[in-house]
Amino acid sequence: MTEDAYRAIPLAGEALIDPEKWDREWETMLRSPHLSGPNGPPFCFKHILTQHRTRPGYTAHGLAAYPTLLSSTCAMQRNMTQDALSYIASQNLDEQWMDASPDERRKHILGAMASVCSKARNLNEARAYCVPELRLSRLRLNGKIFLDLLRSAMIDDITYIPNKPRYISHSMWDSFAPEQEARNTTDEEKLALAELMVLRTKLICYVLHFTLRSFLGLEPPPLQLIKTDHKPEKIDPDTKAMHETIQKHAFGPEEAKKRRQLEVSSAKARISQRLGSCSYMGCHQMEVEGGRKFSRCGACFVKLERQVLYCSQKCQKADWKLRHKAVCGKPLTFDDISTLPEHPANKRGDVSKPEKPADNFFANWDLESGVISLKFPL
């Protein structure tokens, strides 16, 4: 299995069409020693880095989108934690989950993974970054593994949206991330590692959140995706031809053609369904389907095709003072975006405090064992 094997991974568009087939294909891929062993993290890092190096405009687009990716992940993780605390306190979640049959647990976990991974290609590919955590066979047979994973992903203060996510700890990733961070010198390398760690966290938390709500018979939570009008240039013809050859070899000419058609059609459908979100990190409000579109920063879009949206003039003014003035209409480096001012937690008045019963449950958990403390600025 080589780096180019990523061209043959199960497609995001297949996840909802045939979840069982999609999962079987993923399980086959995840059993590869390139992903399941200690080579997994560097292999995944190389995959993202290759995209930055082979697609013109990919890094510039990624640098513009990364602050939103980071802040939306933090907001989502906080919301997941608040929901989980509420379910534990009011619906006896732990006991219900442990009493459920393996098949019942599997149904909800697979449905959650398929729903989340179908929404975006990068979330689908991120399943390869979560081999230790999102193996369906492990999660279904032992209910405690799922509950332990849930606790390790929950933040320890939900009275505000944190500036950094809680990264999911695993020995392979705990050793790889700081070592790779120390070696990184270019924007491509720094951004690739940052995206890898955030997407890994984002997918795990979304799967946990979707699973909980499905299991309890509730509607799925909102899934925030970055809406952008930026279109990176197409892959050069030689690289495209090589990828097509790999797919033909892996699936045969007819199946490879069907996969390309499905990939194109599902990508168009996913992009058309994306909603914008407010770029002010103290807000995170999303557009409503069929409703008013958010205002866009003209300088960023005209000069760089960078999508910076605001739900109101109030948020636009607040973000201008906090961080946007320094980067408006200017090309970004990773050091630029990693040193932007953080939103002070004690000024976030838009986040409600949890109910008291949830506080009591949370206080009894040892969450520090699930924390990875990294030096690089994510």
Score class of each variant (00 low, 15 high):
residue 160 Y to H: 15
residue 160 Y to W: 10
residue 146 F to N: 01
residue 170 H to N: 14
residue 147 L to Y: 09
residue 155 I to E: 09
residue 150 L to D: 07
residue 135 R to F: 00
residue 135 R to G: 01
residue 167 Y to P: 02
residue 148 D to P: 11
residue 163 N to C: 11
residue 145 I to Q: 04
residue 138 R to L: 09
residue 170 H to K: 00
residue 138 R to V: 13
residue 138 R to F: 00
residue 170 H to F: 07
residue 153 A to K: 01
residue 167 Y to M: 14
residue 169 S to K: 08
residue 160 Y to N: 03
residue 160 Y to F: 15
residue 154 M to C: 15
residue 168 I to H: 02
residue 145 I to M: 09
residue 156 D to W: 07
residue 134 L to Y: 00
residue 152 S to N: 10
residue 137 S to E: 14
residue 140 R to C: 10
residue 137 S to R: 06
residue 167 Y to R: 03
residue 155 I to D: 04
residue 159 T to D: 10
residue 141 L to Y: 06
residue 160 Y to C: 08
residue 154 M to I: 06
residue 131 V to H: 00
residue 143 G to V: 07
residue 173 W to G: 10
residue 132 P to L: 02
residue 159 T to N: 12
residue 168 I to P: 05
residue 165 P to V: 09
residue 131 V to A: 05
residue 155 I to G: 09
residue 162 P to A: 03
residue 144 K to P: 06
residue 143 G to E: 02
residue 164 K to M: 13
residue 143 G to R: 05
residue 139 L to A: 06
residue 149 L to D: 04
residue 166 R to H: 04
residue 133 E to L: 11
residue 161 I to Q: 00
residue 146 F to H: 04
residue 137 S to V: 10
residue 152 S to W: 11
residue 158 I to P: 06
residue 160 Y to G: 06
residue 140 R to L: 04
residue 150 L to I: 05
residue 139 L to M: 08
residue 172 M to S: 07
residue 143 G to F: 13
residue 169 S to Y: 11
residue 163 N to F: 05
residue 149 L to C: 07
residue 148 D to T: 15
residue 162 P to L: 04
residue 144 K to C: 12
residue 145 I to D: 07
residue 135 R to C: 02
residue 153 A to F: 05
residue 138 R to Q: 10
residue 167 Y to Q: 09
residue 138 R to K: 12
residue 162 P to N: 05
residue 145 I to G: 02
residue 134 L to W: 01
residue 147 L to P: 07
residue 134 L to G: 07
residue 148 D to V: 13
residue 132 P to Q: 01
residue 137 S to F: 05
residue 146 F to Y: 12
residue 150 L to M: 15
residue 148 D to C: 11
residue 169 S to V: 06
residue 146 F to E: 01
